[in-house]
Simulated assay, not measured.
Amino acid sequence: MGHTISLNTTRTQCIGAYLAQPAGKPKGGIVVIQEIFGVNAHVRSVTDRFAEAGYTAIAPCFFDHLETGVELGYDEAGFTRGRALVAELGLDRALEDVASAAEAIASAGRIGTVGYCWGGTVALLAALRLGLPSVSYYGARNLPFLGEKPKAPVMFHFGELDKSIPPDMVQKHREMLPQMELFTYPADHAFNRDVGDHYDEASAKLAYQRTLAFFDKHLAHGA
């Protein structure tokens, strides 16, 4: 459905991005922020799905700063390589790329972000620092940033069986950002990833409905 474009960044290097357009006039734009595995088939399908829901959707290939065309599997080698890449990339450079991607689709209207795992924390930062309404799925790196004053609303999704984000971490989100919507599900980490062992269809479907409602409110209706 979508296609790869070249995305100018605030640095000298261009990176790739997967862009998917809706059939009609867009309701707004969404920057889709990957897990640690690159813009792989799953991320492209997620991006396509938001386009099918009426939004211009773009998934920046953050890892192109380091290595072109990274698409990792969900085995131990993929986890190890992905963790090393996000550590080398850093959150600041990722956030710069989110801003560049948002600018690239600005003609779609109001822009928001959605991120998963590592991308969940980048999405949180996009709300805190860039003023983009954002949905953060199971961001395990969120805690250091919860004290920042948000510039836009953010919705959180967490799995109740997620060992990387125990209940006390989830509670910190409620305490530090009580004005934001937060939902938990009887599922594990990565419950939205429909190609992994942790996929939970019922939880993923409900979280997606809530996510679309969030974007329809804050982007489509310009709240």
Rank of each mutant, 00 (worst) to 15 (best):
A51C: 07
N40H: 09
T56A: 15
R44K: 15
E67K: 14
P26C: 11
H42T: 09
A20F: 04
I33Q: 03
C61I: 00
D48F: 06
G28N: 13
V32H: 01
P22A: 08
G29H: 09
A57M: 07
N40Q: 10
G28A: 06
A57I: 03
K27N: 13
H42P: 01
D64E: 09
K27I: 06
P60N: 06
G54S: 05
H42Q: 11
F62K: 03
K27D: 08
A20L: 07
D48L: 06
A59Q: 03
F63H: 03
I36S: 06
D48H: 10
E52K: 06
N40V: 08
H42C: 04
Y18E: 05
L66S: 04
T47Y: 01
I58E: 00
F37V: 13
R49E: 14
G38T: 12
K27C: 07
D64W: 10
Y18L: 05
H65P: 00
H65E: 14
F50V: 04
I36P: 00
H65A: 13
T68Y: 05
G69V: 12
G24P: 09
S45T: 13
G38K: 13
Q34M: 15
S45F: 00
G54V: 01
I30F: 05
D48M: 10
G29Y: 02
A57K: 01
G24S: 15
F62E: 05
E52D: 14
K25L: 11
G69F: 11
V70W: 07
H65R: 15
E71W: 03
L19R: 12
A53R: 06
I36D: 03
T56E: 11
I58G: 00
F50N: 02
K27Y: 12
R49G: 07
P22E: 09
F63E: 01
E67P: 11
Y18P: 03
F50L: 04
T68A: 15
V43K: 01
A17V: 09
R44M: 15
H65M: 13
I58L: 15
V31F: 05
F62P: 08
I36A: 04
T56N: 03
A41K: 13
A59R: 04
A17I: 10
A59L: 03
K27Q: 15
I33K: 07
N40Y: 10
V31K: 00
V70G: 10
F37M: 11
G69H: 12
A57N: 01
G38H: 13
A59E: 01
G69Y: 11
G24K: 14
F37L: 10
G69W: 13
A41R: 13
A51D: 05
P60Y: 08
F50S: 00
A17C: 11
V46W: 00
